[in-house]
């Protein structure tokens, strides 16, 4: 009997992976911002985080200004904010609860304990002196999830949809990070080469765990173009957009051929186009024609891939898919 995966489960496993990846990225961004903001542009940097998820409207409805304490509160423990880490892990846990027949007990227990721990955080855990430890805990919990999954999740269709979700989310997060930071960090003539400028670019690399790898490639110079090129196009950097997109394409091809899935050709074509773009352009050309526009088009293509996957495998009709995208992005 061929292996069977409920369409609804494929959907849940895809989103489980995305939510955990999303939480990890958010923790990385907040962590780096907390560590490197105080000696530079302060408040403006915290505002940039609110822009990352287009959360300005919701954030400023409840807060006058973006400062360390209220942004951290909004993004870590605020259960009313759907983009907070606690909400994101709540969605991950809800998906995991639905998926309990499919995932390993260890995957479930770890997410359950992680979520309970987030809901038990107190105000003092968010005090400036405790933030580094808090973000380390969150990152590590997300990575523990990834490790447990790698080590315990049965390698059938579900494993592919899990990984596809994770890489799509990671690619998307990298484009968002780059978009916001690049915008803000475009050097004004007086800043070029100044220590503040360089430390900001280093912070960007650190938030994507790319600082040391970047140093190995470009030991001598940190330039906006090189950093952007590294994060977008480098093939060996696990959080680069190009690497993630290539993995999604490979995984989709494998799940189709190993498990006899005939659908999903539209998603595969969309991914081919995206890979072609990422494999063809040099960073200089991308910057010349506008980085923001480029990142925007990648985000839209990634959404299109999600849409095609939802219709091909997750049991959505095209109309229902639109509603789902509106809810979860």
């Amino acid at each position: 009997m061929p292996d069977v995966l409920l369409a609804r489960y494929a959907d849940c496993i895809f989103w489980l992976a995305r939510y955990v990846e999303r939480a990890e990225n958010l923790a990385r961004i907040l962590d780096v911002n907390e560590t490197f903001s105080r000696d530079s542009r302060g408040g403006q940097n915290w505002r940039s985080i609110v822009q990352l998820n287009s959360d300005e409207e919701r954030f400023f409805a409840g807060h006058d200004a973006a400062a360390a304490h209220n942004v951290v509160n909004f993004y870590v423990v605020d259960g009313d904010n759907p983009t907070s880490i606690v909400s994101t892990i709540r969605y991950a846990r809800e998906n995991a609860r639905t998926l309990r027949p499919l995932i390993s007990t260890e995957m479930w227990v770890q997410l359950n304990v992680f979520y309970n721990r987030l809901t038990e955080l107190r105000t003092e855990d968010l005090a400036p002196g405790n933030l580094a430890a808090l973000f380390a805990m969150i990152k590590e919990a997300c990575q523990t999830h990834t490790g447990i999954t790698e080590g315990t999740f049965f390698r059938d269709q579900g494993w592919y949809f899990y990984q596809i979700g994770r890489y799509i989310e990671r690619a998307d997060q990298t484009t968002r990070l780059l978009d916001i930071k690049y915008h803000l960090l475009l050097p004004s003539p007086s800043d070029v080469g100044s220590p503040v400028d360089v430390s900001q670019w280093n912070a960007l690399l650190r938030s994507a765990a790319g600082y040391h790898a970047y140093r190995r490639l470009h030991a001598a110079s940190t330039t906006p173009a090189r950093v952007a090129g590294f994060m977008l196009l480098n093939n060996a950097f696990p959080r680069s957009v190009h690497h993630c997109v290539r993995e999604v394409g490979r995984l989709l091809g494998e799940v189709k051929s190993h498990h006899g899935l005939r659908n999903g050709n539209d998603a595969a074509e969309e991914l081919d186009r995206l890979q072609a773009v990422l494999g063809t352009f040099e960073i200089a050309a991308i910057l010349r024609s506008g980085l923001h526009e480029f990142l925007d088009s990648i985000q839209r293509q990634l959404m299109a891939v999600t849409r095609e996957l939802s219709i091909a495998f997750f049991g959505y009709t095209p109309e229902a898919q639109q509603a789902q995208t509106a809810n979860s992005q």
């Binding site: 069977v4 995966l5 409920l6 369409a7 609804r8 659908n263």
Partner: peptide, 20 residues
């Protein structure tokens, strides 16, 4: 483990909606 929405009946036979 299925829910009602995962199943349907066609020609007096029961089916579940899968990735395939």
């Amino acid at each position: 483990l299925v829910e009602g929405r995962d199943l349907l009946v066609e020609n007096d036979r029961v089916f579940m909606r899968t990735t395939r």
